[in-house]
Nucleic acid binder design. Structure first.
Lengths: 244, 244
DNA sequence: CCGTCACTTTGATCTGAATCAATGTTTTTG
DNA sequence: CAAAAACATTGATTCAGATCAAAGTGACGG
């Protein structure tokens, strides 16, 4: 029952608006979008799409967090993306979902029927351009994440994840500063994101707390007394900051 | 001194041609591209770009293999992409290179000066559309790779890599079948791709050979007697095949 | 043909994270 | 409010892969 930070009106115009670049949407284009958009809400934990399902829409996250994950039939799972408000999901030109999509927290999506959205993309070049930019950003984020998964130890993985989520929530103004933020993931979801077990996540969170890098307020709120100190635990270069 | 599999004429028309979709390039568009394209060749091992360098071109791989990798200043390195012939590198709209790019084998690039390429993208919607598709494919590949890095053991990682390279080379007709192919990477490069050490790579290659999954002909040529058997070592689902 | 250099294989040991196993803490619900 | 369910912590042990160390192999230049 919290007030959504991005409300429907903000979302209601153009899916691209969320990333604050679609200044070029003409009024008639906006009403065209309105004609095939709709909202859907999900409870925390609910599945949205299973890998292989037909997907007749693309969508933009309005509030909440969703995960993309891929399973290996023996049960191992890897999260391959975390969608925060303003993130886009679905792929124009693709029928079947390539991943499982799950609502991690309570979630509202702004959905657009795929066919009309594709038509609009064909007619309106700047929508495609914006989508290209967003996809390139996501690709960068995915590649940064490969470094985390392939080369970082457990403590660095946790620190990287906290720093990324903190920065993203701050840049969306979901929180006033990167020093205090919501971590809307269970230990298991964190483990799936980081390629660890939930026990290791728990141990490293305890270690970061013990070392004063973070404090926990309640179960889901993280306080970072000194962001640079957290940053220095990630093993990253000072400059080339992570995207997400 | 090998004959390039994709020769300059094949490359010379449209960077997008490599992926066999740009049937819509008009003759004048092609000659427009010709006006600002050029070729560059690199020896195996040569650096092409360092992370943070100014990059005034985008390019398409004509022959050979290049790697994108990201270092952590303590020396750990993770490869975040492997570019085979037809792959695109560089990002329109971006000044600075986000990764180190290295010629893994002898390499020829077909380069386009960035500014005119960007202008052409703005004027010619289908070039941007094609780039969006390619970027989305790369994003899928990056995400599949996250599963490899995050959740697979050493043997599965090696098998996944071999299967992916075999399939890609076969689909490009660089080799007649996926059962025999070139592996143009040192053990160290494989380790950087897979998030392992070179010793572990070597041991697992030996194990796959011992178990009859692969044979080595010379140092760089791999023979796969039974591709399904290799595939079954990857731990993947039968259906959702890996991309790129 | 030999020596060098770059790369690879193999072995011995160590270690960080996984696994197995309680126990503790919240949240939900009847 | 009590009981259950879901989630989190902590401990003991194991094991896959890292690390350290030594040969082995092959390509190349003199």
């Amino acid at each position: 029952m919290k007030t959504p930070v991005l409300d429907f009106k903000d979302c209601g115009t153009c899916p691209i608006r969320h990333r604050a670049v679609c200044a070029r949407c003409e009024p008639d284009e906006l009403s065209q979008l309105d004609a095939f958009k709709y909202y859907r809400s999900y409870e925390a934990g609910q599945p949205i799409i299973w890998s292989g399902d037909r997907m007749d829409f693309v969508a933009s996250v309005v509030t909440g967090v969703a995960s993309l994950s891929q399973g290996m039939e023996d049960g191992r799972t890897q999260m391959v993306g975390l969608l925060l408000p303003s993130d886009f999901m679905g792929r124009p030109g693709r029928e079947l979902a390539p991943y499982d999509v799950t609502a991690v927290s309570n979630l509202t999506l702004c959905c657009f029927r795929r066919k009309p959205f594709e038509k609009m993309m064909a007619d309106t070049p700047h929508v495609g351009q914006r989508l290209l930019e967003m996809t390139l950003d996501e690709l960068d984020a995915a590649r940064e994440w490969m470094v985390v998964l392939g080369r970082k130890n457990a403590r660095e993985k946790i620190a990287s994840m906290l720093a990324i989520i903190a920065r993203r929530e701050a840049s969306l103004n979901l929180v006033p500063t990167a020093n205090e933020f919501e971590l809307p993931l269970t230990r298991e979801a964190m483990a799936d994101y980081l390629g660890l077990t939930l026990e290791t996540v728990s141990r490293q969170m305890s270690a970061l707390k013990r070392d004063g890098i973070i404090q926990l307020a309640g179960k889901r709120r993280i306080i970072v007394p000194d962001f640079d100190r957290l940053q220095s635990e990630t093993g990253d270069d000072m400059d080339g900051g992570m995207v997400a």
